[in-house]
Design a protein around this nucleic acid. Structure first.
Length: 597
RNA sequence: GGUUCCGUAGCUCAGUUGGAUAGAGCAACAGCCUUCUAAGCUGUGGGUCACGCGUUCGAAUCGCGUCGGAAUCACCA
């Protein structure tokens, strides 16, 4: 039983004994005592004034006295206005440390202990251009959320859905055929996804020229866009692809294989992984069967031009197209098919889509249509909607060349880490290989932490030049704190000190030390909250607090030089546990911690 | 225009069942390295929590309205 639940129960007992009143659980409000007051846990007294019919001070006094007698952990209390501040004795906190020392997975639930399985889809790139900053946020969120859900005891399946078909890919293919001169990643030395992306850009530039040409001849913008030979050729290519034309399919396979190789490299560099990759080219047809069945069952309806629709007006939405008049499928059709396939294959309890908030409408409709079609799991689809990443100059636009490329960004971060480390002379005496690994860990740590510390729901601003810092509330700051701890532990070991597995619970500890223990105590609750709210930001902000608190402790107390061996060992053990929690929390964010830096 | 989301310090962000004097970091300024890694620690300044009204013992948090921003409402994905 946690100390909070003991107190909560005690307060209810007090209300019954003192005022003969039953109070509901949610009437008992506990919170951390604010730092400016003495105490650890605070009971809010206001809700009890009606039943006590006394002043807040008097009521607090009575409940406080009751609790102190009932609960041995409570050492004393004080009342400020309507707040009863309880002080928990040091013995309790030290015993708690003793409990978590042997626990290798402190903060985590047992793997697969909930019996709940959840599939997380993230990344979902198009194969016509390389990954950019927007994908970076998506990848980091998806990977971190998956880890957090695992830490909560769920069985998690991480999947990627590659959008490998459609007109956008034909544009790249066409441009490559016209202007590529047979260029390949090998002949150009270019990463495959970047090479293909270049032809997508080339297409767009040439297409614009054609449009301008037609407008100059007197056509409207809209007419010009439709008349341009390039777009017609691209559409023709798509039709050939759907008809399985040999040359087209071969080219498509070749260029996609370049892109996948490039993506794999980027994923590997970022440290994200998938259990299963789906390709839209393989799933897009399944949706049609589902729609046709819905039509037969009169759940969907057909318009005179043969297009198929779902009527969602009763649910407060519009009608939604599910099949075009020519019988081809749209985005929604594919997603219906993919969802069905996944639930059939994996029988998951929950499906989480990590997709930007620009698609809020799409996922509401997706879930609704599936519910209408009678799938019992339809309500278990969850859209983890995250905000856009904006640049100081505004939105990123591929066509205007204002995108921040994922590979460039990672490289830049690692280079910055290197420049910083070299300037500080931190890694003198390391081999080039060791040093490079540390630059990588720090550079990526800075990037990942910077993005994940922001509430996923919110749009965020990213300034590639100025936003990334290595001091303050940053990944490297937390990593640095970890290396400080590891350094002490190494030194202790060199001195022949064995950190004990059990601490004397009678020792006198300082306020800062207690603060740190209390923070570590919160970790499992933070992991739970992060899981239920799908928010890595909670973990990020927590681990920052831990690092900050530890640095203050580190500054205030000597550890290895402490003469009292019992106290010294306590501080060593506290440091070690702090290090473990930092490592564990950072791991949930997908961030590595170095042993030195 | 309809719907949804957002607006907290110069900048980037915390603040989650409503709770005490709204917190960090960056930037600025002032201190701390013969002592466990100064990528650290300490201090100073900086706020009409967009605005108004309401609910409440109590509102950054809940409700209504106004202003400002974003997304979306495609036979695009």
């Amino acid at each position: 039983m946690t100390i909070e639940s003991s107190i909560s129960k005690g307060v209810k007992d007090a209300a019954l004994a003192l005022y003969s009143a039953d109070v509901a659980d949610n009437q008992v409000q506990l919170q951390e005592t604010r730092k400016e007051f003495s105490g650890d846990i605070t009971v809010v007294i206001f809700p009890f004034l009606k039943i006590s019919k006394k002043s807040p001070e008097q009521t607090g006094q009575e409940i406080g006295e009751f609790l102190k007698i009932q609960l041995p952990e409570i050492e004393g209390f004080s009342i400020v206005k309507g707040f009863l501040n309880l002080t928990i004795n040091r013995n309790y906190w030290l015993s708690f440390l003793n409990e978590i020392i042997p626990n290798a997975n402190y903060g985590y639930a047992m793997p697969n202990s909930t019996g709940h399985s959840v599939m997380v889809e993230y990344s979902s790139p198009n194969t016509n251009k390389p990954l950019h900053l927007g994908h970076v946020r998506n990848n980091l969120l998806g990977f971190s959320v998956s880890k957090i859900l695992k830490a909560n005891g769920h069985n998690v399946i991480m999947v990627n859905l590659v959008n490998d078909r459609g007109i956008h890919i034909c544009k790249s293919m066409l441009a490559w055929k016209k202007w590529g001169n047979g260029a390949t990643p090998i002949t150009t030395g270019k990463k495959g996804d970047h090479l293909v992306g270049d032809y997508y850009v080339k297409f767009d530039a040439e297409y614009k020229k054609e449009i301008k040409h037609f407008i100059d001849k007197g056509l409207t913008q809209e007419e010009a866009e439709k008349q341009a030979p390039l777009i017609k050729q691209a559409q023709e290519m798509l039709r050939k692809w759907e008809a399985k034309d040999n040359d087209t399919v071969t080219l498509w396979e070749t260029m996609n294989s370049w892109v996948y190789k490039g993506f794999d490299e980027t994923y590997q560099k970022m440290g994200v992984t998938f259990d299963r990759v789906y390709y839209e080219s393989q799933t897009y047809l399944h949706g049609k069967d589902i729609v046709n069945k819905g039509l037969k069952d009169n759940i969907l309806y057909q318009k005179p031009d043969n297009s198929v629709w779902a009527d969602l007006t009763n649910e407060g939405f519009d009608e939604k197209l599910l099949l075009r008049s020519d019988g081809t499928s749209v985005y929604m059709t594919q997603d219906l098919g993919t969802a069905c396939q996944r639930f059939n294959e994996y029988h998951v309890d929950e499906m989480i889509y990590v997709v930007g908030n620009e698609q809020d409408y799409h996922f509401k409709v997706l879930s609704l249509v599936l519910q209408k079609l009678g799938y019992s799991w339809a309500s278990q689809l969850k859209h983890m909607s995250y905000g856009m990443v904006e640049l100081p100059s505004g939105k990123m636009k591929s066509r205007e060349g204002t995108v921040v490329d994922a590979d460039d960004l990672v490289t830049e971060m690692i280079d910055t880490a290197q420049a910083m480390a070299d300037e500080l002379g931190k890694l003198d005496g390391y081999t080039a290989q060791q040093a490079e690994n540390i630059y990588r860990i720090i550079g990526l740590g800075a990037l990942k932490y910077f993005i994940l510390k922001v509430d996923p729901k919110k749009n965020m601003t990213f300034d590639p030049k100025e936003s990334i810092d290595f001091n303050g509330n940053t990944g490297p700051f937390i990593q640095y704190t970890y290396t400080r701890i590891q350094s002490i532990i190494r030194k202790a070991s060199e001195m022949g000190i064995v950190i004990p597995h059990s601490i004397d619970t009678q020792i006198i500890i300082g306020e800062k030390e207690k603060q740190l223990i209390k923070l570590l105590y919160k970790y499992p609750a933070i992991v739970r909250d992060a899981g239920s709210m799908l928010s890595p930001a909670l973990i990020a902000n927590y681990v920052y607090e831990v690092a900050k608190e530890y640095n203050q402790f580190y500054h205030e107390f000597s550890i290895l030089k402490e003469e009292n061996i019992i106290i010294r060992n306590f501080r060593l053990a506290l440091s070690q546990i702090t290090g473990k929690v930092i490592q564990s929390a950072m791991d949930l964010l997908g961030v590595e911690v170095p042993e030195r830096m």
